[in-house]
Design a protein around this nucleic acid. Structure first.
Lengths: 241, 241
DNA sequence: ACCTGAACACCGTTCAAGT
DNA sequence: ACCTGAACACCGTTCAAGT
């Protein structure tokens, strides 16, 4: 309900008080556009952060944005990069590979969780080729190498863990009540399981998605640990390490 | 390429040859609309399967669809249900819980993989409340119960596995080449890992996403198995089972 | 009940014209 | 180089009018 062009003369006529032509000092920048996009996503959801909405928020015409971003898809990718940049990776230099992966996974998921509407929008993007992500991968891979994982399996492990993280992030975006069976009588076991979890959640103050994330991550890493041990296990001479 | 309005004069003028008013026998149905939607998604991608495109394909005006589906979001949910229906669940009645979960996961992922463009569109949807999905959950939960998982942890385990499946499905939608570091020189370990995997993939005929899915799923289930053993382990009287 | 026809309120994007 | 202004080719959705 924006009160635009109401009565009178141009009362709330926010539109361009600026005249055409190149402004003395440039108004926009790629960074400004991306940050505004992320802010609007947070404030209004993914649908409230299109090219036109961002332009309006910046007091500019939509076409002006195209001087700094190639188009909407590129803008979305840029916003994802903005979020990815905030995922710390220094734990890979100080912790054992499995503990480091666990900490990383928590931060990774939290980075998206901080902007709920972005999850559906951004998790869908191909696990990009942008610079930030690649640098993150570099540290993960280095850690796996030091731990003794064979080099041809590094990406396999990395992507498996990342898949779980993204899936868990999607789950986080879903409403806690989304799986509520209501009063259906044809799924008794599910109903019992749903209620038992609900009671447990009510007791502790945690979200449903947190339980699944913690348990899944713990299991995944435990399984990977076992697999690495088996890879190294047949080693007949432990002193060779 | 549906050959519509074939002979006669108005050759390519497909638009409404039908006059207004209720047709003698109704043309549309919810099922027909959903199946056409899925087909168009397969043929043209998610962007080529909007309300208007479906209407055109069915030789009908867009507004006619609203007699059978509430709107676009409901249509997308319906298409997801169409896909979900094809995921078999009978393995939960015949196999041990962990083997059943493994088979289920393979089918679940394959159901989406059969319609690549849908993955990004559908995986994003909250793990719905629709009837098919809930019935699927019922069988999973029943299996976990028989295996000895405490009832308040059934959904936790189920959702953890499902998160991994959906994350793996997203990975499947990404191009194999998407993680290619190109000729970057600042990520040597990553570059080596990428090339080592590429060589391995070239040898065997598999996709990158398959490796990560198999390894992640195996690890996840192995970890869950260990956790269940620990839960049951302290049992002082094995005969009580 | 179930379709057409016309309209509404949006999109992202392009491009000439201005400075 | 970087903005405005106007236009293009789309969307999903609503609703009166027809049968």
């Amino acid at each position: 309900m924006a009160t635009r062009g109401t009565p009178g003369i141009p009362e709330v006529a926010d539109p361009p008080r600026r005249r055409a032509g190149r402004p003395a000092t440039s108004i926009l920048s790629r960074t400004l556009i991306l940050e505004t996009g992320l802010r609007l996503i947070d404030e209004r959801g993914a649908d409230g952060a299109g090219m036109r909405a961002i332009a309006k928020e910046l007091g500019v015409r939509p076409s002006a944005l195209y001087n700094h971003v190639a188009g909407y898809p590129e803008l979305v990718a840029g916003v994802r990069e903005l979020i990815s940049e905030r995922i710390p990776t220094d734990m890979f230099d100080t912790l054992p590979w499995d503990q480091a992966l666990s900490e990383w996974a928590h931060h990774y998921r939290a980075a998206f969780a901080a902007h709920p509407p972005t999850i559906a929008l951004l998790a869908v993007l191909p696990l990009s080729e942008d610079s930030v992500t690649t640098e993150m991968y570099e540290r993960v891979v280095a850690s796996l190498g030091r731990a003794g994982w064979p080099v041809e399996r590094h990406l396999e492990v990395l992507v498996a863990v990342e898949a779980f993280i993204l899936g868990a992030a999607l789950d986080l975006a879903a409403d806690d009540d989304m799986m509520n069976p209501g009063s259906r009588t044809d799924v008794p076991e599910y109903l019992a399981a749903y209620r038992a979890r609900a009671a447990r959640l009510a007791a502790g103050g945690r979200r449903a998605a947190d339980l699944s994330f913690e348990t899944g991550l713990r299991a995944l890493l435990a399984g990977l640990r076992v697999e690495l041990e088996e890879l190294k296990g047949p080693d007949p001479d432990p002193a060779a390490r």
